[in-house]
Design a protein around this nucleic acid. Sequence first.
DNA 1: CGTCTATTTGAATGTACTCAAAAGCGGTGG
DNA 2: CCACCGCTTTTGAGTACATTCAAATAGACG
Lengths: 200, 200
Amino acid sequence: MFSEKLFKSFDSYLPLNKAEKKDLSSRLTERRLKRRQYILQQNDVCNHFTFIVEGCLRKFYIDNKGAEHNIQFATEDDWITEYDSFYSVRPSLLSIEAIEPSVILQISRNDLLFLFLNNAKYDRNFRVIAEKKYIELENRILESARCGAEERYLSFLSRYPNLAARLPNLQIASYLGITPEFFSRVKNKVIANNAAAQNH
Amino acid sequence: MFSEKLFKSFDSYLPLNKAEKKDLSSRLTERRLKRRQYILQQNDVCNHFTFIVEGCLRKFYIDNKGAEHNIQFATEDDWITEYDSFYSVRPSLLSIEAIEPSVILQISRNDLLFLFLNNAKYDRNFRVIAEKKYIELENRILESARCGAEERYLSFLSRYPNLAARLPNLQIASYLGITPEFFSRVKNKVIANNAAAQNH
DNA sequence: CGTCTATTTGAATGTACTCAAAAGCGGTGG
DNA sequence: CCACCGCTTTTGAGTACATTCAAATAGACG
């Protein structure tokens, strides 16, 4: 059962009991996403918190030239939403789409707000989720502040080795905040350096 | 009483009752900070959540060349901490210092963890704090992704008009991710544009 | 009033971007 | 199975935004 994965992710903070699991299950919607399928489009209101059972999604911004800027990736056992739009019920500046075929569980705003009101466990679990997400973003800012594209790429490789392997270059470039063309040069340079290091 | 400000900041989410206020008060430490006074030094562990009663603090990163990069400002009625170090109890990559003479209230990790365990209201209130902080950071990333220094400055001006007025240029430049020299040019250009717009 | 820090200006430099085009890769249909 | 199409990646040349270094000026504070 897919929701077991979700319950498990709460276990280290405030586990749910049987009744709570059952109740939560009834509020979850399972969806299967194809590659490129959106769960949130720019200018729509974000109405769900999304748990990823399997696959990989990205949250990104499309600027006025049409260029896409990845803000964040999320894979198995992670959550993704657009907090600002979700809580303010205003149009989202960001979009969220599946990069890989994915399986997700979604909970609507009404259901989540209901849970917050009626069971304090959810405050705990979602506090922890928000705090972790915050740390992730802060690290991202830190990295863009402190170094050039090559170091950021190396840092990305070591922080998210499995992501680096499964994502197309285009997505990584967009996350690093550089053009695909420039990323190609950076990547080849890194590979060349590694080869040189191997040869001695 | 300074802690009243703090209690008030909870009112829109989950207000505290009298007994809770008294208990929380006993766990708060009031401190007065001079300009430039640190409450967290890089490589120290962040042991407190800090509420700002009055003044302005900044969280920043010092790179290996000694250059400082502002991650976030916090003023009256806002909270500041380094989540990663606070929860992991590991040395912080970031520093926090007062930009203005400030009055703060601090709660220690032990006390806050105690409150989380014993009163679910705190999970709620600190969930909301983390979510707001997350939104703030996401906006910051968005802005650095979508535009050049001049637009970022204009956007900063409109988003935080009072901050822009009270901060020295150096701090703003560091927040925008540009050098003070370049910021000076950007600012003068913006001023020139405004003057031109006035004259017709 | 002098010192220290913040801001401004100039010139040379560099990192990353744009535009253009070629090459590689994978899927789809004939 | 090959040919074609679309998409991703690579390469090249010219450009721009922002940096660095240096020095001059202005402000703030004791």
